[in-house]
Structures are given as structure tokens and as C-alpha cells.
């Protein structure tokens, strides 16, 4: 079907996944095992089930999939409401990140029904029954739905996400931008670093140790087009690499999944064009 915005959930429920088994290629510690089914709510007319990825680092056991069920009539409208309800009323050990509950902070990014999105702005009306909830893909799991973002944040640090300027700051006022120059940052500055896109990028799955991934390349673009930054050439030098930048094969899972409706794929293409511009 035709998708017009990343908000849209595909009406096509199948295929749910690529033809690979759930544990194919997983290291022994990453293999997912069957979990437990928690009792269903009594007297509920609208039951919603969740198959949730669980991992308890202290148990020494492998990750498992637990099934929870809630009464829709006694729950808030969003997936995050359901997760909080489960944590409050069924299983207090369920662990996930959350903060703003309105799509601003990016903490509750997770894999919902096979695609990445923020739990706080995914309506329970939009998910399937039963629904699957996994942590963001290809991250070392600290606990349950909490992935270790150390590596992606280090990749962020590696692109020097700060103003690199040689001209001394003007006395008495800040470095000025014209409204047009400021406008060039639109579509970049809104990124909340939730890493839905990077976690959904197949190239980052295979080569995430070297490929920077869509979120970080979008941030790199943000500094490349900033009129106050004077390290454009150095930045392009640092990015021009078969892996850091050119592992992007324009698959565009990033643009499809961005909860803020940004377009990392387009920004990466623009970086590649900038590199060609200075060559010819």
C-alpha cells in the first residue's frame, strides 16, 4: 500500500518478518526462549495482549518472550499507558525507559509490531492483537526493553556535534544567522536522538561498528549546513569513508520509521552530493 507519512501504520499485517528464524545468527547469550503467559484480566470485554521481550541480567538466563493481557476499558489510549499499567498492576519487574509521554524526549523508542516507534505516541488502536514489543534492534540489552546506547552515542560524539569555528566570536553579541541560514537547519534540529532509524537500518545491523547510521549522519548534516560552523571541509573529510558514510545504500527504512517525520535518507544523500560538489 501507499504510505504518505511515517505516522501511518501499514494495513498489511503480513508478512510479519523476513523468512529467517527468530534465533538465526544469534549468539548463544542472545537466543530468545519461550516465556510465561500472565493471567488475563477477568470480566474484560476488550482484551489486548502483548508479547514482550524480557531479559533479566541478574538471572543469568537467556531472554524470553512474556505475554501480558490488559483490559482496554481500564487503560489509557497509548502503548506506553499499557506498559505502565502492566508494570503497576501485573509485573513490577518490567523495565523500560520513559519520560515525557508526548513524543518529545525519545526515551520510549522500541520495536512495536516489527517497526520502531515511540510507545507514548503509538495508539493502542493502531497495534495488532496480540502485539509484539521488543527493544530497539541490534543493541546490547541492559534489561528488558532498555538497550545500551553507549556505542551510538559514541558515534554521535565522533562527528563532533558542536560548533567548530575559527573566527573569534563577535564582541557584545552572539554569532548571527540570517532567517534563511537558520531555515537550513529545519528538518535536522528536530531530531531527538531516539535511534528508531539507526536501529531499523539494515546497513547498521551488518556494519554498525563502522557505519555511523542515519541518526548520526542526520546530525552530521546539521553541522555541515550550519552557517556559523567553519569546519565544513574537515567534517566532509572525516565522513568520506566507505563505511562511515557510504554504507548507506538508500534503503530508506529510516525515513519510513522516523517518529518525528524527519528524512535522514534525504539528508545523507545531500551529504554525498556535497562531497561530489567539492570534487568537480
Amino acid at each position: 500500500m501507499l504510505i504518505k507519512s511515517s505516522k501511518q501504520v501499514s494495513r498489511w499485517r503480513t508478512p510479519k518478518r523476513f523468512p529467517v528464524s527468530r534465533n538465526s545468527g544469534a549468539s548463544p547469550a542472545s537466543r530468545i526462549e519461550p516465556g510465561v503467559s500472565w493471567p488475563e484480566p477477568e470480566g474484560a470485554t476488550r482484551v489486548q495482549r502483548f508479547k514482550v521481550y524480557r531479559h533479566d541480567p541478574e538471572s543469568g538466563k537467556n531472554p524470553r518472550i512474556d505475554t501480558y493481557a490488559i483490559d482496554r476499558d481500564k487503560c489509557g489510549p497509548m502503548l506506553l499507558d499499557a506498559l505502565i499499567k502492566i508494570k503497576n498492576e501485573i509485573d513490577p519487574t518490567l523495565t523500560f525507559r520513559r519520560s515525557c509521554r508526548e513524543g518529545v524526549c525519545g526515551s520510549c523508542a522500541m520495536n512495536i509490531d516489527g517497526t520502531n516507534w515511540l510507545a507514548c505516541i503509538r495508539s493502542l488502536d493502531e497495534i495488532s492483537e496480540p502485539s509484539t514489543v521488543y527493544p530497539l534492534n541490534n543493541m546490547d540489552v541492559i534489561k528488558d526493553l532498555v538497550g545500551d546506547q553507549t556505542h551510538v552515542l559514541a558515534q554521535y560524539q565522533s562527528i563532533t556535534p558542536w560548533l567548530r569555528s575559527k573566527t573569534p566570536a563577535p564582541a557584545g553579541h552572539e554569532r548571527l544567522q540570517s532567517p534563511e541560514e537558520r531555515k537550513r537547519l529545519d528538518g535536522d534540529y528536530e531530531c531527538i536522538l531516539c535511534f528508531c532509524c539507526t536501529a531499523g537500518c539494515p546497513s547498521h545491523w551488518w556494519n554498525g561498528d563502522r557505519f555511523l547510521g542515519p541518526a548520526i549522519l542526520l546530525q552530521a548534516h546539521r553541522w555541515l549546513v550550519d552557517s556559523r560552523d567553519e569546519a565544513t571541509g574537515e567534517r566532509l573529510d572525516e565522513l568520506e569513508d566507505p563505511f562511515k558514510l557510504y554504507r548507506c545504500h538508500t534503503i530508506l527504512n529510516c525515513t519510513r520509521t522516523c517518529p518525528k517525520g524527519l528524512n535522514p535518507g534525504k539528508k545523507i544523500a545531500e551529504i554525498k552530493l556535497m562531497i561530489q560538489q567539492r570534487r568537480s
Binding site: 573529510d237 568520506e240 569513508d241 566507505p242 557510504y246 554525498k272 562531497i275 561530489q276
Partner: peptide, 9 residues
Amino acid sequence: SAKSGAHHW
């Protein structure tokens, strides 16, 4: 950075 890849592209 290998400072290459632009030519390949």
C-alpha cells in the same frame, strides 16, 4: 576515515 568512497560512488 579512509578519505575515499567518493570516487567509487
